[in-house]
Every structure is written in structure tokens, then in C-alpha cells.
Simulated scan of single mutants.
Amino acid sequence: MTEPLFCSVELAARIERAEEQFIAAGTEAAIQRDPGRAFVSPIAGGFACFAEDGAPFNKVVGLGFGGVPDETALDEIESAYAARGSAVQVELAHMADPEVGVLLTGRGYRLVAFENVLGMQLSSVRATPPPDGIDVRQCGEDELEAWLDVVVTGFAYPDDQGTPTHEDFPREIVERAERDLVAAGARTYLARRDGVVAGGGGMRITDGVAQLVGAATVPEHRRRGVQTALLATRLADAAAAGCDIAVVTTAPGSKSQQNVQRQGFHFPYTRAVLVKVPE
């Protein structure tokens, strides 16, 4: 049994800093492809990011722990997104300064979704063997394409448990985003079941926080322990690397949330997803 995780404002701020650095680093990789269109702009302790049309990195992250943004800064950010024909999406932790939410809703942002951030203390994590027939290993460079294929394919067929997503990304956009996450420092893991590639996942470490990302299993291998094995391997590697906490973001009520809670993750906080569509 893992020790219950109490999430203070300080811990939430630490997790959000890791998240904003991850999204910004992934967007920096996109800037290398299109420096005239992609951008990363600091705002009130967070970042406003835009990678390309329809990309999952197109959002404002990390607000609410470094002061309240002023109206002029928001005007500039909103103009930058509008110039690219994009809505402004802000992911705001419920433990952030509540004045930020008041400011955004006053400017016409509307609530469209929630996402749950779950965490686990790693002090008691021990390596556990995977189920029979399942092998999980960190990828070599020659396995990147296999990892991309299984992760992108898995995302194309989401489980229908939990709240429906408000986003839908084309396969080529997801693939480029995953490549950018690898460029941003994410470790990649492949799971094989009876010798066949069945699933994949990623992990990025920032200041002792292990972010577990990019987890997906192709439909024909689901409900066979693939994700449990991927989770256990990454947690053991995170603990061995000196991390004290692991975090994962899920849709509320999803199979992913159920899986990680079964493995000892706790529910520190929620992010509200607020969107403003350009006029």
C-alpha cells in the first residue's frame, strides 16, 4: 500500500512547473520546423504555446502560481492565437490562484472540460515482474518508429469509459507531437505481448517529478495487463533515477484513471480547461 499523497499548493506548483516545461520544450521542437508560426511566450509564471494548426501543444499552461496575468499580457497572447486562427485554451489547476479564473471568465473564456492529475510518492515503489508473456523495455533508437506506430494507433482507438474528450487530433498531428515529446526529453518504452508489439508509453523527468505520458495499447491487446506492466516499469525506473513523485494526467472517470488508481495513484487535483474563441 502506498502512502496517501497530500497535495499542498507547493506540490501542485511543482507539478505544474514540470508540465509547463514539458509542453514548452515540445513546442520548441515544433519551432525548429516553422519558426515564423510556432511560438512559446512566457506569461505570469506559465507559458502560452502554439506548435501548428490543431496541435495538442496549443495551450496556455502553468498559470496561477506566479501571479495573476495582467490584461495587456492577455491581450497580446490572445492576439497571437487569433492571428493563427486558433482559439485560446487555458489549462488551469484548481489549486491555482482563484483570481486567475475570475479574470479569464470575465474576459469570455468558457469551461469546456476537466482533466485529472494523479500522483504517487515513489519512496515505497519496488520493481514488480510483468504478467507472463509481457515484456517491457526502454526503446532503443532503432525502435522509435515501432513505438510511434503503436502509441499513435492506440490513441486512434480510445476507450469509451469516462467523460468524452473535447479534442480530436488527426493521426499525422499526433505523430509529430509524439516526436516532439521525444525531442523534449521523454524516454520511450515498448511493451511486447508474446513477442508482438502491444503498447507503449513515455516518461519525462523534471526536478524529481516523473511525468508518465504517451501510454497506449492497441485494441487487440487490451485488458491483458499491458498498461499495468508499462506503468510498473516506468515507476521503478523513476524511483531508481531519484524521483520522489510520479504523476499522470487522465480524463475523468477513464480506464486510464482506473488503472493508475489500482496501482496506488492518488487524486491530488483537477485542471479546468477554459477556451476563448477569437471573434
Rank of each mutant, 00 (worst) to 15 (best):
M1L: 11
L5E: 04
E10N: 14
A12P: 05
R14A: 06
R14W: 10
I15A: 05
E16W: 07
R17I: 02
Q21E: 14
F22L: 11
F22Q: 12
I23K: 07
I23Q: 07
T27D: 13
A29G: 02
Q32D: 13
R33S: 03
V40Y: 04
I43C: 06
G54M: 15
A55P: 05
V60G: 08
G62V: 10
P69A: 13
P69M: 11
P69G: 06
D70G: 08
L74Q: 02
A82T: 07
A93S: 15
V100Q: 12
L103A: 01
G106A: 09
R107F: 10
Y109C: 01
R110H: 11
L111N: 12
A113H: 07
N116C: 09
S123D: 15
A127R: 12
T128M: 13
P129W: 03
D132N: 14
G133F: 05
G133V: 12
I134W: 09
E141F: 11
D142C: 08
E143V: 11
T153A: 15
T153V: 12
A156M: 14
Y157W: 07
D160L: 11
D160H: 07
D160V: 09
Q161L: 15
Q161F: 13
E167A: 14
E167S: 13
E172Y: 10
I173G: 00
A177E: 14
E178L: 08
R179C: 04
D180P: 01
D180W: 01
L181M: 14
A186Y: 04
R187N: 02
T188S: 10
L190Y: 02
A191Q: 00
R192N: 07
G195Q: 01
G195D: 06
V196P: 00
A198Q: 02
G200P: 09
G201Y: 09
I205L: 13
G208C: 04
G208S: 07
V209W: 06
V209H: 06
A210E: 01
Q211C: 02
V213N: 07
A215S: 13
R222M: 03
G225W: 06
V226W: 00
V226Y: 01
T228D: 03
A229E: 05
A229L: 07
L230I: 05
T233W: 00
T233H: 02
L235A: 00
A238E: 06
G242D: 01
C243W: 00
D244I: 11
I245M: 05
T250G: 02
T250Y: 08
G253Q: 06
R262D: 06
R262W: 10
H266T: 00
F267S: 11
Y269R: 05
T270H: 08
K276T: 03
E279S: 09
